[in-house]
């Protein structure tokens, strides 16, 4: 436990907004603001938040698609990087945009190996191997993406992420574009892969229902800041942060309409261009008091459950 897979320390992504013409407007969008967390090997961390919370941006930084503007990020693979092997891979939300329509499935899935310098012959066996692992027939290799359904495409995307033998897969809402019946199949596939290969997921989602099935720990993000970070069992049993509670209350129950129970979240998420002072959640928080608008709460462990951390002046 002393050697975590991923260490993020006070990481920020502030994006300067472009004004009209060629000049910068001087305004910065705080997409991610001083987030610190660690992930152990084989652990699945779910990042939960509304759209605009900065969870995808954080995922992009972890995947190396974006540079942080402050803080640090460290990935320590258990095996050395050989032949350009990348310890991190990524799966996206939209399975239609994830696969190049001009390539065959074999070329798509084999791309990470191609980028490692392996030739086509070497790649082929491995492609068929991962196709089987994601439950696709070998015949799929010679087809083009448009011949597959959304769920099948997501399997292919997972196969591409798997082929380079990564240790961490950033999954950016991999289920939300799929039909509900397909969602559970992909979810099962992902947890199956996790168990068989010991892969960690950096699992980005806005859906607690999905998170409950997969996550070991949960991080709740709001306006780029970490609100709560806790083991999955504990956060589902006793959410400490009022924002976490509000999100959970919004989870739809099968057979009933969405958001039937107490609508705690009022109004829209404020703009990250100009986040509220103090605790960023105070404008929508039912428990807000005077201190919340002036002082930024620190992410601290709960007295009763030290594994559960929350950034709130009035945590439960």
């Amino acid at each position: 436990m002393s050697n975590p897979l991923l260490e993020i320390d006070r990481l920020s992504v502030h994006i300067p907004m472009r004004g009209k013409g060629l000049l910068s407007s001087g305004i910065k969008l705080r997409a991610v603001d001083e987030v610190s967390l660690t992930m152990q090997r084989g652990e699945t961390l779910a990042i939960v938040g509304e759209s605009g919370s900065g969870k995808s941006t954080l995922g992009y930084v972890v995947a190396g698609l974006r540079q942080q503007t402050g803080g640090s990020l460290k990935i320590t693979p258990s095996r050395p990087h050989q032949n350009g092997r990348k310890p991190v891979q990524i799966i996206f939300q939209d399975p239609f945009s994830a696969l190049d329509p001009r390539m065959t499935v074999e070329d798509i899935i084999g791309e990470p190996l191609r980028l490692m310098g392996q030739d086509r012959g070497t790649r082929r066996g491995r492609v068929l191997e991962v196709l089987e692992q994601v439950g696709m027939p070998a015949e799929a290799a010679q087809r083009y993406p448009h011949q597959f359904s959304g769920g099948q495409r997501q399997r292919l995307a997972i196969a591409r992420a798997l082929i380079g033998d990564p240790e961490l897969i950033v999954a950016d809402e991999p289920l939300s574009a799929l039909d509900v019946s397909i969602q559970s199949k992909i979810l099962n596939l992902m947890s199956d892969i996790k168990e068989r290969h010991g892969i960690s997921y950096f699992f980005i989602s806005h859906d607690f229902g999905v998170v409950r099935h997969l996550a070991d720990r949960v991080a709740v993000l709001y306006l780029g800041r970490l609100m709560e970070l806790a083991p999955a069992d504990e956060i589902f049993a006793n959410p400490a942060h009022p924002y976490t509670r509000a999100l959970m209350d919004a989870v739809p129950r099968i057979g009933r309409g969405r958001r039937k129970r107490g609508q705690v979240l009022k109004g829209e998420i404020p703009t990250p261009l100009n986040p509220p002072s103090g605790c960023v959640f105070h404008t929508r928080c039912p428990r807000a008091t005077a201190i919340c608008s002036t002082e930024r709460p620190l992410l601290l462990p709960l007295v009763s459950r030290p594994a559960q951390l929350a950034a709130c002046h009035h945590k439960e």
Binding site: A63, G64, L65, G84, K86, V88, Q89, I90, F92, Q93, D94, S97, A98, L99, D100, P101, R102, I108, E111, P112, L115, M116, A157, R160, A161, G164, V170
Partner: peptide
């Protein structure tokens, strides 16, 4: 901005590769 270009970038693709392999054919 297609995800397949992003996926290639994560897998280590450089700009030149993305232009030649993904952008031009598409």
């Amino acid at each position: 901005d297609r995800d397949y270009v992003r996926a290639a970038t994560v897998a280590g693709a450089k700009r030149r590769y993305n232009v030649l392999v993904h952008v031009l054919p598409n």
